[in-house]
Design a protein around this nucleic acid. Sequence first.
DNA 1: CTATGTGAAACGTTTCACAGCC
DNA 2: GGCTGTGAAACGTTTCACATAG
Lengths: 252, 252
Amino acid sequence: MATGRTHRPATRSRGIPEATVARLPLYLRALTALSERSVPTVSSEELAAAAGVNSAKLRKDFSYLGSYGTRGVGYDVEYLVYQISRELGLTQDWPVVIVGIGNLGAALANYGGFASRGFRVAALIDADPAMAGKPVAGIPVQHTDELEKIIQDNGVSIGVIATPAGAAQPVCDRLVAAGVTSILNFAPTVLNVPDGVDVRKVDLSIELQILAFHEQRKAGEEAAADGALPTAARAGSADQGPDGDVPAVMPA
Amino acid sequence: MATGRTHRPATRSRGIPEATVARLPLYLRALTALSERSVPTVSSEELAAAAGVNSAKLRKDFSYLGSYGTRGVGYDVEYLVYQISRELGLTQDWPVVIVGIGNLGAALANYGGFASRGFRVAALIDADPAMAGKPVAGIPVQHTDELEKIIQDNGVSIGVIATPAGAAQPVCDRLVAAGVTSILNFAPTVLNVPDGVDVRKVDLSIELQILAFHEQRKAGEEAAADGALPTAARAGSADQGPDGDVPAVMPA
DNA sequence: CTATGTGAAACGTTTCACAGCC
DNA sequence: GGCTGTGAAACGTTTCACATAG
């Protein structure tokens, strides 16, 4: 649904499906784990299991990147790590700003996963003057007044919004005006952005509501099925639903 | 991709598409805002704009719930709030446990959005004995040893995992064994669960990587387009990508 | 003989366009 | 006259099944 305009064919293999892009980080994580254990090669079957998807999907996904496997053998772990990293743009590192250093913002700042893969917290920004100068996760919090300067000085193109809902849109507008073109939004609001700016959202309450829906349905079915399967069958392991939600992106 | 087994037709209008379910919370949020401003009715056009989707999609979504609108007029706000709440199972309230009270767990415990819509934090659980008894967000942290007892005593069916990656699977296993059937996973791992257990995941690092992919592509296109559109056109407001990711659910 | 890579089928979701009702 | 509700078309994603290469 949300694959950029594709202004033109560009280099060559343009057009990796959005659903595939959303799964690449999963593959990368599984591959990194294998790499740390010095595993040289994996089959699509093994890697798929580690990433929580089925092997046909994985092979199809990789086929969009090129032919990086060896028939009869599998994939070279190191090589694939590199190829996927490159495809995702993780060979360069991205300076990121976090705006809104409350509980959540602080948790994000402390989150190790940031640094581990190509992202660097360039600055923490908060509207509370009392926070200014205080270090969070070893980084001093700066005041919102500095926002534009910080973005420009650091060449930041990715912003994380962890403010209360009411502050999110104004912050978003300022980020975009200052040059940010990708936003990860934790505030429970719909953000309005110009064309060419991507927004992804993470909303705890929405996730819980979706779980509640299925939970309710289970309860209903149990009642409906009556004396039949009382506690339901327990076995096997479910596929994790690969993507982190495909359609939350709003490309150019 | 992940709609339950549908053991049988059940009552009647079974089979709301997963993509629609994922958007219902968005509509609900927009409707709640309208309700607070005492707006009596909305058109699909207005509500869609508030929820960040297009009106055709919204109407199709609502058509799965029934015919709750009035042609030529629109939808009754209060009535729709009720119908969607009921559909999502939010008319009852769900006790939830949060396991792993680090930075993120604490942030989640403090998150207001929990209580606001049918969810109640029944307990906070952490493996660190030093945390035991300490109140976080007004709720005393309990030790992991108590996990099974807490789940059973409170009839908890939804668990939130905010532990480090290494602890997530064991915690998940214990939650499931104790009776939890829906899990919201913040740990960067694939969780293995038996059939009948839903897992949704929220992964910051994955979201950032997806943004980086598009960001990189933008940079490439700009370079490719050369002297042409230098800073790119800025105008209009993008649609927010309704769902929080449809496929992360693993129903029965 | 094994495991990748990929057309083609099946499925799910979104968009279109308009009939139907208020 | 205006807005909902919905078949049908268009599109994207997943799954199947097998030709192909090592």
